[in-house]
Every structure is written in C-alpha cells, then in structure tokens.
Amino acid sequence: MEAAVRTSGLRKEFRGTVALQGLDLVVPPGSVFGYLGPNGAGKTTTIRLLTGLLRPTSGTAEVLGLDVASRPDEVQRRVGYLPGRFVGYPDLTGGEYLRYLAALRGGVEWSEVDRLADRFELDLARRLGTLSHGNQQKVGLVQAFMHRPDLLVLDEPTTGLDPIMQAEFLSLVGEASRSGATVFLSSHILSEVEAVADTVAILREGELVRTATIPELRAQVVRRWDVTFVHEVPADVLRAIPQVAEVRVRDRTAHLVLAGSAEELLRTVAPYGVENVETHETDLTEVFLRYYTHEEEPWRVA
C-alpha cells in the first residue's frame, strides 16, 4: 500500500533562512501520526508544504500517492486541513460558513456536519465573529472532518479546546483512523497526542531528529531509581546489569540510572536484601523536552 505521506529531501527556505532541511518522512496509511516539536521547529512549514500552500525549495512531497506540487487540486480534494491559526469569515454563522465550504467541495453530507457539530456542542447559528477562540477552533475542526477525507492534516488541533473537547477530538481522531483515514497532527505537547498517535516524529530546527512508535519511546525512557539495601551495596553486581547506565553509592543506597526494562535489575538485587526502592519516573514529555533543549539523546547516559 502506498504511503499516505512521503517526502524526500523536502527543503524550504524563506529568504535565505532554512525552515526545513531535507525532510524524509513516511506516514503509513491508516495511521495516526504525531508531528512534534517546539514552536519554530518547522511543523507548520511541513504542513503548508503538504497542503500545497507553500512550494518546496527542493525535494518532493507526495500525498496519497500524488505529487503535491504538480497536482495540488487532487490532493486538496482528498485532504481535510486545519490551519495552525484557523480563521473563518466573521460575518457568517458557523452553519453558513460550513455550507459555503461544503458547496465548494461538493459531496458533503450535511448530516455529517450536524453530527460533528453535536459532538463538539457547537451552535451553528452563531456568527463566527461572536464565537470564542475555542468555538471557532471547533468550526475549523468540523470543516476539516466533514467531507470524510482520506488524510487529515491538522496543525495544533487542540489549541483553545477545553479538556472535555480535547477528549472528544481525540476520540474523533481514533474513529477516523479506524475507518481507514490517515491523521497527521502536529503538536508541541507530547501528552496531547500520546494517547492516539501510533507513531511520532520529532522535529527540531527544521530537522527530523527521531521517528518512533510510542512503545518504542517508552522502552527508552530513562528512569532514576534509588535502591536501599539491608547491608552493603553490591556496586559491582549492579554495574554488570546491562540496563543500568549509572551507579552512585551513598551509604546503603544506590542511585541508579536505568534505561529500558527493570526486570533483570529486580531479579539480580533480590538476594542481596533490598530494604526500599524509590523510583523517579521520567515521563515521555520530559524525554521530548530534552530533545528541544539540545541535550544529548536521553537514553544514552554516560
């Protein structure tokens, strides 16, 4: 099966400033793909290249097997797009705005619009100019989903949504994915996409630093454990365990840095009489934050 999105050497410069440097990305069809990075990393640039709003400086972008640069209209027919800062016509009601876009797209079932509006508790009779930012964002989401596109390209979709609506959005993403659509969504917060994304890509300063599944990343999370022994710390034994990256001993407590599974550590230390184990879990968000701040790859601890 062809990739939903495939870019090769995709590069974008704005007046000499490099926004995206040679991106090679493959998004499998039917997946939910989280595109992560801090502000200014090149997420929006990538999304605007995929939707045909920007032209690449070099390299190519294919969406649903179609070259975006040469066949933008066919791509745009099959894509649902939410811009990073969605703006509708303030003098139109939500209903009028969606009617207009549905007329331009053709083939939109209005019952689908009503269903989506209901789920987001959106009042379609109100003018967009009078809606809060969050409610405008819902209109933006409805227009992206309403024609049941093969690929959803959503730039920071949860911006302005309250937690209940965020959950509603995530369940909608899950449904779209189960019915065969591919969802490409950007975020600067991992926890937002962790629950729905199959795969995440991490972007920093226009460069892809890693693509991985969520379980793969979890396996590589670095944790800090403090193990207190009844007697003396068996430091050499601990150092011999492959997952233990670092050992510091103070009195009867070993301060460990653990990368990967804790299984072997637990089995090994049990006979030495463990009095207490204290764990300091590092969540995935912290892992990503380290990417953003130029630190070494977090699982390679010296």
């Binding site: 939707t51 045909g52 709003l53 933008p72 209209d73 066919e74 745009q76 027919r77 894509v79 797009y81 811009p83 800062r85 969605f86 703006v87 509708g88 016509y89 876009l101 331009l104 797209r105 053709g106 933006g140 227009q143």
Partner: peptide
Amino acid sequence: EDGTLDVLLVTPLS
C-alpha cells in the same frame, strides 16, 4: 492577511 484564504485554497478548486 485576514487568514481566511488558507482554507479556501485547500479545496478542490484550482
């Protein structure tokens, strides 16, 4: 400049 052009352009219309 208003930002409404984005969605209008990402439609099947050329």
